[in-house]
Design a binder for these strands. Structure first.
Length: 811
RNA sequence: GCCGGAGUGGUGGAAUGGUAGACACGGCAGUCUCAAAAACUGCUAUGGGGUGACUCAUGUGUCAGUUCGAGUCUGACCUUCGGCACCA
């Protein structure tokens, strides 16, 4: 009998003792960097983590067996909001909570029998790591890629604290249920938009199409024109309204302007009569988030500011509105409105009784009033010198004409915004900046890093940033003039920590650099990066940005961090929905490992379906896998006895072995673990039959057993190591080469010819390989079944698919 | 709302435009047993016909289309899941 518990513990200890999975940087074999998105230190690993890790481990092991020097590191993403929530709720320090979770998760990860190199472990909340996160901040600051500007945050006026989106429920604070408002704070940004064009381009990397599309949409490139509309009454520094449009061809049809309610010019251009209404509207829009504001379901509304501006093309006098469907963060925070040719503007114009001026004629337009916006292309009318041009030509011509007028010109706009990295929270890497009364904003000297996160922190129920009240932390001296100064109390977005951890793995202990150039350039880019698709835009985007920024600073010689990306699916809780601790619907692998062993759990997770699909959790099939491993054990360990040898059986036997090796290798290469295991099950069922018959020679049987163990080794590492040893083979099975197949021996001796009449299967005939079309037809016509269908009917056409199928079309 | 996926037996799923349901789970029947469990063997999409080997029809979310042939390609729709910038 096979006892997984005992075997698994034994081999895990043995592998650790023998340092079987420690990676040697100097190994001359070709490198393979296999990486799974490191886990967040949320407490326990649930089955979803295993679903992410086990197949990836199997693939890494397969690559080792194919002769690669495989780097498969592991670490923890350890800063972030949940640790702080735990601190507030349970009175436990975030550090203690986080390190406790890491200890538990490490134990769980080790119980899986993975080939991680634990000597390279990285933990982002430890100062020997975040020191370098801060160092990157300073480098970006030096390159003018880190800067400060005002940006809105979710603000709870009652708690006097900034809330994460997660902490806002239906527009209310999750703690005290006060109405949350948008409040402007001076915050830190990274200049990610400078790389917009490059980030939208995924040339040379093998990523899922859907992720590339999501990232391109995230960048949101659009071509059009900038146009300046001169204000009737310039106010302060604002003498005109600048807009971006993708439809410069409709610019003669502008009948009003809409600017974002939070646009700074609103204060200055609003007339006294409109002040009250405008202020009330601004107040209301602070209570909405961007998704609500952009929703096309809700009716668009706005308020007249009392101000007017002029269309530079035809001098039309145009009223200026504010409307919350215009976002300050996109484009210039202002849009021109052409109700005749934009659905949203049309509805707005109808609502407020604004003129609708047609400037693009549809093919059969006769000058009648529009009942809805005409948003297609057409030929221009009421557009001065551009009349009768078509939209496409006019877009260019009008944009160029604006350049001549000095009122704008062709332009490219991106939806992408700069990356807001400021967090008004404790549990993150402090931003290494000091504010000095005489020198202003001063970066901390590199040699002074890390700016240590103080241990002492008072967590208020409201969630206010404890750093603000820690005088020892806040009060410091200016790095420039040495006078008293104050520290920045914002910490960095944890996405900054996870934007470079994969490079740290290449030189995990380097004390004087984030990584050594030689190491990072040996291992990077990551050959296969796996993780959830929920990171499609943020993490994956920021990591690409930082890589490109580091390249331009000369720290690395590659542009893309991840050569190939694969997204495994999501394991949903039983009954649907995401697994989460708060819902109490998580499934822990620990109980399953106790029940059937890690090998069975690994194989089960790979068998339940295509890896990129995920699905609702259900362990109904787990016992089946466990039984299969038991059968494999008996098959391999219990003696084989030759009985009556049979030549045909032996030929079939050898062919089955080679065909299985080919299919298993191919499936592994394509990350199709479910069909790989199905193939092995089919093969083991077949082997059991042959064993009963005893019709193949002993030495060939033994070869099949060896290859079976080797093919299974990446998936179920413990049982295979044990069987390998019992079979008297050299330790370790995980240092052996993956079996090779012989294409000739794998070739079938005969085929099944499927014969169809009008596309319906009517007969199946065994036939030799290499059948010609004529031979196939003759064969089909000799079948009685086929004759009964063709008799008395006229054959119109015969289609032959070589070696597979013959379709006879009759009338 | 916008963007991106996914829909196949009782269940998870398989299927280079070419035999739909591989491989499993579950169920049913049998072997073994005093009995049960375990293990093993067989059957298991639906409907009809036949004692039977078998045979006919229907069938991959819905409705159209392309094709000798569609789960696979095209269009529209329905359902469902993920992302939308402070959960990570």
């Amino acid at each position: 009998m096979y006892d997984p518990t005992q075997i698994e513990k034994k081999w895990q200890a043995q592998w650790e003792q023998d340092a079987l999975y420690l990676v040697n940087d100097d190994d001359a074999s070709p490198k393979w960097y296999s990486l799974t998105m490191f886990p967040y230190t949320s407490g326990d690993l649930h089955i979803g983590h295993w679903y992410a890790e086990a197949p990836a481990d199997t693939y890494a092991r397969y690559k080792r067996m194919c002769g690669y020097n495989v780097l498969r590191p592991i670490g923890f993403d350890a800063f972030g909001l949940p640790a702080e929530n735990a601190a507030i709720k349970r009175g436990i320090h975030p550090r203690e909570w986080t390190l406790g979770n890491i200890a538990n998760m490490t134990r769980q990860l080790k119980s899986m029998g993975s080939c991680y190199d634990w000597n390279r472990e990285v933990v982002t909340c430890l100062s020997d790591y975040y020191r370098w996160t801060q160092w990157f901040f300073l480098k970006l600051f030096k390159e003018n890629l880190a800067y400060r500007k005002k940006a809105p945050v979710n603000w709870c006026p009652s708690c006097q604290a900034v809330l994460a989106n997660e902490q806002v429920e239906d527009g209310k604070c999750w703690r005290c249920e006060s109405q949350v408002i948008q409040k402007d704070l001076e915050q830190w940004f990274f200049g990610i938009t400078k790389y917009a064009a490059e980030l939208a381009n995924h040339e040379g990397i093998d990523w899922p199409e859907k992720i590339k599309i999501m990232q391109r949409n995230w960048v949101g490139r659009s071509e059009g024109a900038d146009i300046s509309f001169l204000l009737e009454k310039p106010a302060k520094e604002y003498d005109s309204i600048k807009i971006f449009t993708t439809r410069p061809d409709t610019a003669y049809g502008v009948t009003f302007m809409t600017i974002a309610p939070e646009h700074p010019m609103v204060e200055y251009i609003t007339t006294p009569e409109q002040k009250e209404e405008v202020t009330a509207y601004q107040q209301r829009s602070r209570e909405k988030n961007d998704i609500e504001r952009l929703s096309t379901e809700k009716e668009k509304d706005g308020v007249f500011t009392g101000a007017y501006c002029y269309n530079p093309l035809n001098d039309d006098k145009i009223p200026v509105y504010i409307g919350d469907y215009v976002l300050i963060s996109y484009g210039t925070g202002a849009v021109m409105a052409v109700p005749a040719h934009d659905t949203r503007d049309f509805a707005f114009a109808k609502k407020y009784n604004l003129p609708i001026k047609v400037v693009i004629a549809s093919p059969n337009y006769n000058g009648e009033e529009l009942s809805q916006a005409y948003i297609e292309s057409g030929s221009l009318i009421n557009s001065g010198r551009f009349d009768s041009m078509n939209s496409e030509e006019a877009k260019k011509a009008i944009a160029e004409y604006l350049t001549v007028l000095g009122k704008g010109g062709p332009s490219v706009n991106y939806k992408l915004r700069d990356w807001l990295i400021s967090r008004q929270r404790y549990w993150g890497a402090p931003i290494p900046i000091v504010y000095c009364n005489s020198c202003g904003l001063v970066p901390v000297n590199e040699e002074e890093l890390p700016v240590l996160l103080p241990e002492k922190a008072e967590f208020k129920l409201t969630g206010e940033n404890p750093l603000k009240y820690n005088e020892e932390f806040v009060n410091t001296t200016c790095p420039k003039c040495n006078r008293l100064a104050k520290r920045e109390t914002d910490t960095m977005d944890t996405f900054m920590c996870s934007s470079w951890y994969f490079m740290r793995y290449t030189s995990p202990h380097s004390p004087d650099a984030p990584f050594y150039k030689e190491n990072v350039e040996k291992w990077m880019p990551v050959d296969l990066y796996t993780g959830g698709a929920e990171h499609a835009v943020m993490h994956l985007f920021y990591a690409r940005f930082l890589t490109k920024a580091l390249r331009d600073m000369g720290y690395v010689n590659f542009s893309e961090p991840f050569s190939r990306l694969f997204n495994q699916g999501l394991i949903l809780a039983q009954g649907g929905g995401k697994m989460s601790k708060s819902k109490g619907n998580t499934v822990t692998p620990d109980d399953l490992v106790i029940r059937v062993g890690a090998d069975a759990v690994r194989a089960f997770l790979m068998f339940i379906g295509p890896w990129d699909q995920g699905g609702e959790w259900n362990d109904a099939g787990l016992n089946g896998i466990s039984r299969w491993l038991q059968r494999i054990w008996s098959l391999v360990i219990e003696n084989y006895q030759e009985q009556t040898l049979n030549e045909k059986d032996t030929r079939d036997f050898v062919r089955a072995m080679h065909r299985t090796i080919a299919k298993v290798g191919d499936d592994l290469e394509k990350l199709r673990f479910n069909t790989m295991l199905a193939t092995l099950m089919e093969y083991s069922n077949y082997l059991n039959k042959v064993k009963t018959a005893g019709s193949v020679p002993y030495f060939i049987w033994q070869e099949a057993m060896k290859n079976l163990i080797l093919m299974l080794a990446p998936s179920t590492p413990h049982i295979t190591e044990e069987m390998w040893q019992i079979k008297g083979q050299l330790y370790s099975v995980h240092q052996q080469a993956f079996p090779q197949y012989d294409a000739e021996l794998a070739t079938e001796e005969e085929i099944t010819l499927v014969v169809q009449i009008n596309g319906r299967v009517r007969d199946k005939i065994n036939a030799p390989i290499g059948l010609t079309a004529q031979q196939a037809e003759d064969l089909a016509r000799s079948s009685e079944k086929i004759l009964s269908f063709t008799e008395g009917r006229q054959i119109e056409k015969v289609i032959y698919v070589a070696g597979r199928l013959l379709n006879i079309v009759v009338k």
